[in-house]
Computed example of a mutant assay.
Amino acid sequence: MAREFELTRNITIGQYLPTGSFVHRLDPRIKLFSFGILILAIAFCNSYGGNFIVLCFSLLLFRLSRIPLRYGLSGVKPAIPFIVILAVLQLLFYGDIASGGRVYLEYGFIVITSDSVRLVIVSALRFIEIIFVSSVLTLSTSTTQLTHGMESLLKPLKYVKFPVHEFSLIMTIAIRFVPTFAMEMEKMMKAQASRGAEFGTGSWWRIFRRTKEMFPIIVPLFRVAMERAEDLILAMEARCYVPGGDRSKFRKYKSSPGDFLVLFFLLAFSAFLLMYPFPY
């Protein structure tokens, strides 16, 4: 029962864990670009061998960044119900799309083949790997670094009148507020449980019952979100923030040869995942 209230422990995206590793010291611009390319390569990798290599590499990233592996694995736990639902839907209804290979079961419109099973396994692995890589990126990069790095990468879009700074700020705030809302939701669950509400009494696969249990949390969570947004607006106005205005930066980022070496390695690794003909 107590594990049902440990939401912040299972939310790794949006938190920053300073460990002093070389991954933390990388130029945020290089880190965002290289990790973004890696995530795209993972999304298009459709082989067992490629996904196994990526899974091992993503676990190695936790080691290199000195982030506890148990902490990283806890970020997958909230996504397990979605992975299971997605796997069941793909297995039952994607038989016509992945119709090749050996047929295991055919009943009406439900066709389960070796290729549809392959699609289910590969999709689940890609989902987990993207969570791992995204967790390493946010756990090793502070909110300020994410904002400046994203703004620098999108700077060419200013020539087409795209609000680069505002977009970068919105994306960074959205990522940063994920653990904040998890903490608020955890407080509400504990408060309502102390008043007799039931949370986590059913099995995790009983999706409809567990969703019904969350309904009393949704309305107050939206109210808290609006209050947090209003507080943020007042804080930014108190600091004379003007959208679209020219702003100076306290820190100037300079890329080192080590940063470019990491970029070259991740680009080569991503190209290898996309171009190498894995047998399985």
Score class of each variant (00 low, 15 high):
E106F: 02
F269E: 03
D259N: 03
E230C: 00
E227G: 04
L221E: 14
F22S: 13
I37S: 08
H24P: 13
L92R: 03
F162A: 07
L86A: 14
L137Y: 14
Y71Q: 04
F278R: 01
F222L: 08
L169S: 12
H165A: 09
W205V: 12
G75N: 06
M189G: 11
A238M: 07
E106H: 13
V224C: 04
S168N: 05
T113A: 02
V117K: 06
V111E: 10
H24C: 10
M150S: 14
K252W: 15
N10Q: 05
V103G: 10
L261P: 01
I218F: 11
L86G: 14
I85L: 12
Y107C: 01
E198S: 13
P28H: 10
A124D: 07
I13E: 07
P28F: 12
D115W: 02
T172R: 02
V88Q: 09
E166R: 00
C45P: 01
S123W: 08
S135L: 08
I37N: 06
V164H: 02
A43S: 15
L73P: 02
E230P: 00
K249R: 14
S152T: 08
Y48A: 03
G196Q: 07
G200L: 13
S142Q: 06
W204V: 08
I37V: 15
R25T: 15
G244A: 00
L7Y: 12
I207V: 10
D246N: 08
S65A: 15
L274R: 07
R210K: 15
P216H: 03
F265L: 12
K155Y: 10
Y280H: 06
R63T: 15
I175V: 14
S47H: 08
S114V: 09
F177V: 04
R228P: 04
K252H: 15
S168K: 03
L261F: 12
S116K: 06
I128D: 00
K254D: 02
F82L: 12
R3G: 07
S21Q: 09
L234Q: 06
F215Q: 02
R9V: 03
R25F: 11
W204T: 08
Y48L: 11
P18V: 03
A79H: 06
L261D: 03
D96T: 01
I121L: 15
V164G: 03
R206S: 09
L153I: 12
G200P: 10
I30N: 01
I233S: 08
L263A: 13
P28R: 13
W204S: 12
V84E: 02
I11N: 02
V117D: 12
E198V: 14
K187L: 13
R251F: 09
G75F: 05
Y107M: 06
S134I: 11
I130H: 05
R118L: 14
L139F: 05
V103T: 13
L61S: 07
F132S: 04
E186Y: 05
R70Y: 03
P68Q: 01
